[in-house]
Design a protein around this nucleic acid. Sequence first.
DNA 1: TTTTTATTTGAACAGTGTTTAATAGTTTTG
DNA 2: CAAAACTATTAAACACTGTTCAAATAAAAA
Lengths: 201, 201
Amino acid sequence: MSIAQRKQEEKQEMHKRILNGARKIFLKKGYEQTSIRNIANEISYSPGSIYFYFKDKSEIFHELHKEGFQLLLGQLRVFDAVRDPFERLKALGSSFMQFAKDHTDYYNLMFLVDERNRKQGEGFQIAKEAIDYLTEVVRQCQEKGHFKNLHTDCFTFMVLSTVHGICSLFCKDHTAGFMNRTDEELMQHGYDCFVTLLERG
Amino acid sequence: MSIAQRKQEEKQEMHKRILNGARKIFLKKGYEQTSIRNIANEISYSPGSIYFYFKDKSEIFHELHKEGFQLLLGQLRVFDAVRDPFERLKALGSSFMQFAKDHTDYYNLMFLVDERNRKQGEGFQIAKEAIDYLTEVVRQCQEKGHFKNLHTDCFTFMVLSTVHGICSLFCKDHTAGFMNRTDEELMQHGYDCFVTLLERG
DNA sequence: TTTTTATTTGAACAGTGTTTAATAGTTTTG
DNA sequence: CAAAACTATTAAACACTGTTCAAATAAAAA
């Protein structure tokens, strides 16, 4: 078993190596602007080799997509410690935005690449878990008297939409219309406005 | 002058013909999946001909981008008639979402294609006008006592983010995480939640 | 009619994702 | 140990991509 085991480890190493090369280029140039040849070049292998480990380009992307979600979720889990659900919700939003700022390319990969022609498999699951978690936080907020008479699911969707909307405008560089305001200002103060609304509602 | 005039008209016709072919394919397959050869084929011309009328692929895209904004703005201008600014704001949001539902591909072209490597010229101007208009509506709402003690610009950005966020999740088909709810429900009720927040704040 | 100009084309270039036959390297089997 | 079997890798090929450009054609002006 020792030989077969080593083989498998080598295979996993190569898998990782490709992923490392791909990540580097995907995050620098985006999905469309990254070619298999670029990746192959990065790790000094032939383009064909990559197809021995991955079905196609989108499968490589998909793994990074999952990776990004794990990174984000790890970052959000920190706030499990925050007792008050409303404070936790606010912190989650802030942290989500911070993620978009720190890892813009991951964010693009995770939320701004078209999902319509993609098979909704595994990586999709992890997103659903995140949504369920957020929904639970909102429910707890409502238990404590916030957001009265609003349907939990739809309200959660709206909260996520707002934060994602802010991040999306930032990531696609659509913030320029609000001139004499930096991205930093817009995102932070825009979010603050939203939090104020949440507090009042 | 008659000949030169006819010439110019023919040139404009060809310009339009390319745009028509391009629109058809761009809106069906998206930016990246549309090739110059596809467009040329659609209008029964050679690929090279297109470069006689357009600098490059992105210039064709840009014209359609502008076209989309004109369509949207025309749709929004209807609500100039609504007197109460808050009612107008609510109607604008609804209508914006309706546009995303009716013209998902235009929406993708207008708001969900990366602007980072694009020269921020003309078409950009029309977006700024729309933002200025929205800002004015928000200002009028505040004049009537809504959204007290919130900075107009940032608040406007937040409102736009929310509506765009909802549309963005819809357009990229990221709504599946909220299962047993249709897109229609999510968007409409999510927006209703937001409006309720606005009313309470 | 000839010259000049405007328009159109097809071929070429360098790139893309992906497939595949051949090859070299390694492991298992006789 | 040698032969067969399997694994991993590659270069070449295919059908695409955006873009350029010399050549051909059509139209207008002289």
